[in-house]
């Protein structure tokens, strides 16, 4: 088990290296550089040249690239090219907000989506099913930033139940700030989970052993249903793992709408300031998330179903 995890984590290294390379060059294709972004409209060519020299941007590209890779391997993210702040600190401040948002949204997704999906599958074609499917359709169709704006207008501006800006200080305040963004992202997650649960449960329920049990009586049916749910959970877990990554991406617009600190805010700002070091580090963290989420998904599937072996 531990060997498996270690091997999986080792496999991450080439992926992360490729991400690093891609990001490194993609950033440098964009017009403008950190010096131009940082020095502003009054900058003279001389001042820009000096700033570039200080950041090492005057070196040949391959030198910069190898220097950067070497630095990355020692997990040294360096300092922001825009304002000199240590990247580690910037990420340390931002990450908890993004992670808590993604987790809260996922929790909302599970709490609403799983039971709703199970119930609609059992009461197939009933009123509840119709409601569930409509809910999923709408959840899928409402753009997250639009939904966020609506929530903000109603629950923050007019009703004044929730704060409008930032991420909050201290546990309760942070929780208070988390509610609306989490609902914004959680809706899609719930719609997704509901639909996935419903279809995979229906898939299992049509199998022979369940059909037989249905004919026999309530008690056995209940046992089998539990069994069926367990089986149905595997695709749901895998699907949600994949969707969690989409949710992570969704944090960008939601953070923007709610002026919330986080990785998305950090990266969007970084791109506009051509803060190479910041964007590079931020994307590596994102890539790392992707890998970890995939790994956790596989581990979770194995835990749910002992028949799955980890190779």
């Amino acid at each position: 088990m531990i060997g498996y995890i270690l091997r999986r984590l080792l496999e991450v290294i080439p992926t992360v290296l490729l991400v690093l390379t891609l990001v490194f060059f993609a950033l440098r294709i964009m017009p403008g550089d950190p010096a131009i972004a940082a020095l502003g409209e009054f900058a003279t060519p001389d001042a820009i040249a000096r700033f570039r020299e200080k950041l090492g941007l005057n070196q040949p590209l391959y030198m910069q690239y190898f220097g950067f890779i070497a630095q990355s391997l020692t997990a040294d993210f360096g300092t922001s090219m825009n304002n000199g702040a240590p990247i580690g600190d910037l990420l340390g401040q931002a990450l908890p907000y993004t992670i808590s948002l993604a987790l809260a949204a996922t929790s909302i997704g599970i709490v609403i989506g799983l039971p709703l999906g199970a119930m609609t599958a059992v009461h197939r074609d009933g009123k509840l099913d119709a409601f569930g499917r409509l809910f999923a359709l709408i959840g899928f169709s409402l753009p997250d930033f639009y939904f966020g704006i609506l929530l903000l207008l109603v629950f923050s501006l007019h009703l004044d139940w929730f704060p409008m800006l930032g991420g909050g200080k201290g546990f309760f305040d942070q929780l208070h700030h988390l509610v609306l963004p989490a609902i914004t992202l959680g809706l899609v997650m719930a719609a997704f989970t509901m639909r996935l649960t419903r279809s995979s449960l229906l898939e299992v329920l049509k199998r022979d052993y369940v059909r037989t049990a249905r004919g026999k009586g309530v008690a056995e049916r209940w046992v089998i249903f539990k069994h069926a749910l367990r089986n149905a959970l595997i695709p749901v877990t895998t699907g949600m793992g994949i969707y969690l990554l989409t949710t992570l991406s969704g944090t960008i617009t939601v953070e923007l709408v709610f002026s919330r600190p986080g990785l998305g805010t950090l990266l969007i700002g970084g791109v506009s300031a051509r803060d190479y070091t910041l964007v590079q580090a931020g994307l590596v963290v994102f890539a790392f998330f992707v890998v970890v989420v995939n790994l956790l998904t596989d581990l979770l599937c194995a835990a749910i179903d002992p028949r799955i072996t980890l190779r």
Binding site: T15, L245, I252, G264
Partner: peptide, 12 residues
């Protein structure tokens, strides 16, 4: 590799 970029950021 492409999947490990957040979609929106890739777009940006």
């Amino acid at each position: 590799l492409l999947m490990s970029f957040p979609t929106l950021l890739l777009g940006v």
